[in-house]
Amino acid sequence: MATVNDFTPKEQPQWCPGCGNFGIMLALRNALVKVGAETHNTVVVSGVGCSGKDAHYVRTYGYEGLHGRALPLATGIKLANSRLRVIAMGGDGDGYGIGLNHFVQTCRRNIGLTYIVHDNAIYGLTTGQTSPTSMKGMKTKSTPHGVLEEPIHPLALAITSDATFVARTYTGNIPHMIEVFTQALAHKGFALVDVLQICPSWNKVNTPEWFKTRIYDLNKEGHDVADKIKAYEKALEDVHSGYERVPIGIFYKVDKPTYEDGLPQRKEKEVFEHDISAINMEKTLAKFI
C-alpha cells in the first residue's frame, strides 16, 4: 500500500504563503492513500495556472497540459487506458472560463475522471484579474471599476449538465477536503469537486474571515444527495442568500453507466494493450474491391 510519502516528491512547492493550493495538495495525497491508489496507476492532469502545479507536486504520473484543456487531455488518457485513475486539476479561469465548453461536455459524458477545481474566484498566476466566479462588483486588475457580469454557478451548471457527482469543499477545512476527495475518487463516473480556495495575494474579498461566518456543511443538515432539484437549489444558495450561507459538501450523487461502459472496443482489454504488430486488413480492404 502506498503511503503519503510515496505521493510526495522531493521538490518543494512554490506557491505564495497561505495559498489554498498547499491544502489541496496535502488533501489529495491523503485521499489517494485512503482509496488505495498506486503511484504508477495514477495520472494527475492539470491545466495552467497556480493550480496547474499539482501535476508536479503529487508524485504519480502527471501531465501539465494547456490552460483550460485539462479535461480533454485527461479524457484521452482515460479512454486509452481506463484502468488508470485519472485526476484532472484546474483553476476557475481554466475550467469555467477558457475551458468551459469542455467542462459541460465532460459532465454529460460521465467519463471516469475526478475533476478538482481550485476556485479562488481570481486569475492567480496572471496576477489578479477577474474570473468567471468572481462576485459581481468585485474590483480586480482587469475590472478596476467592478465586475459587471453575474458569476458562473459551477455546481448548478454541472448538475444541469448531468454530472453524476457534484461536491464542494473549502481549503480552510482540510479534513473536509480529504473526505470529499476520497468520495469523489471512489465515485464511478465523472466527479466534480469545486474547491473554494483562498488566494491571499489577489482575492482580498473572499478571505478566510469572509468564509468563516458563511460556510456550512450541507450534509450535516440532512441534505438528500439523490435529490437533483434540491441539489440544484443548494447549488445556487450562496448567490440567492446574498452570500449569507455558502454550503459545502456532497450536493448530488447518482450511479449511472460511464462513457467507458458504452465502449465494447475495450471490453476484452484496454485499447492501448492490443498487439498492433500484425493487424489483419484483409477484410477491411476487401471492401474497396
Binding site: 492532469v45 485527461a74 479512454l79 469542455h102
Partner: peptide, 14 residues
C-alpha cells in the same frame, strides 16, 4: 478538445 484528447491518449500508449 480533439487535439488534446489525442495528446492524452498517445501519452497513455495508444
Amino acid at each position: 478538445a480533439s487535439m488534446n484528447m489525442v495528446v492524452g491518449a498517445s501519452y497513455a500508449g495508444a
